[in-house]
């Protein structure tokens, strides 16, 4: 999947993945896609909750060798 911006939040723990995701999405226009990579297991639940609160959409989620990747489309 193609994204407009990639964010590497690997190795960061709560609340930094959310804070970084918020800052990254603020730089995008509506409809653009942010790709976020995290290793914090808490983010598995937190990113979807944050996406829901902001009215954004998760287009894809995958996990590979402990790295979780989300594709988030900005509302």
């Amino acid at each position: 999947m193609k994204s407009n911006l990639q964010l590497d939040a690997k190795g960061l723990s709560c609340p930094m993945p959310i804070v970084k995701t918020k800052k990254a999405i603020d730089t995008l226009a509506s409809g653009e896609i942010l790709e976020v990579q995290v290793t914090d297991k808490g983010a598995l639940a937190d990113i979807p909750a944050w996406v829901k609160a902001g009215g954004h959409a998760i287009l894809d989620k995958s996990e590979d060798a402990g790295v979780i990747t989300f594709f988030i489309q900005k509302a």
Partner: peptide, 9 residues
Amino acid sequence: NIATAAAAT
């Protein structure tokens, strides 16, 4: 943590 998470939301 709660404050920054809330502000980021």
